[in-house]
């Protein structure tokens, strides 16, 4: 006979993660703490299912306000700026350069790029995104907007580049674009 499992007093993980990702570093702990407290009360009074429903609904309805707060704090603008300067512009510039190189071939050629050129794209993105990246220590939560902006910038650059890019290149490029958001020369200070 199975023992009846006691429901854990734990807000739904995905909703909690979304909440932490949406709220900026200064607000995340407070917002999550308040919601967890209310979640606990509701859990005791109306049971786990109702408390979870309430929690998810609270996260969904706070999302626009949290995002707007983050936008006003300049955090998202900074992330977009860093992604544009560190990922999008370098990739677009390199695409223009490769187009020029290929169009100078006396008997012309197609738009399939040499693997060395694709590798150069990845290295250039790593360097540029490091050069324009945030210099303060960052937590995974803080890195969220940077990662999303870098991924969108890389995807956009692939989209506007001529020719089809190999899947392996796209994966490496996306990883490189996002990598810098997690890394900082001063990260050690976090400890």
């Amino acid at each position: 006979m199975k023992a009846a499992r006691k429901p854990a007093l734990q807000p739904p993980r995905a909703a909690e993660w979304l909440l932490l990702a949406l709220a900026g570093d200064p607000d995340a702990e407070f917002v999550a703490g308040d919601l967890a407290e209310n979640f606990g009360c509701l859990f005791a009074r109306r049971g786990g299912r109702a408390a979870c429903r309430w929690y998810v609904w609270q996260v969904v309805r706070s999302a626009p306000a949290l995002l707007s707060l983050r936008m006003r704090s300049g955090e998202l603008t900074g992330a977009v700026l860093r992604a544009t300067l560190g990922v999008l512009l370098p990739l677009v510039a390199l695409d223009r350069l490769w187009r020029f190189v290929y169009s100078q071939i006396p008997l012309k050629d197609g738009v399939e790029r040499d693997p060395a050129m694709l590798l150069a794209n990845i290295l250039f993105v790593l360097l540029c995104s490091w050069a324009v990246g945030r210099q303060e220590p960052r937590t995974p939560r803080r890195a969220g907007p940077d990662v999303v902006a870098a991924l969108v910038a890389a995807a956009l650059a692939v989209r506007v580049a001529v020719g089809a890019a190999p899947a392996a290149y796209i994966v490496c490029l996306l990883l490189s674009a996002a990598a810098n958001s997690f890394w900082s020369p001063r990260r050690r200070k976090l400890r």
């Binding site: 020029f100 190189v101 008997l107 012309k108």
Partner: peptide, 21 residues
Amino acid sequence: YQMWIARLMEPLITPQAEKKM
């Protein structure tokens, strides 16, 4: 190559031309 930028880029252009060839 007659354009200065193409002359500069020659080390990149020539291997691609050879590949196409």
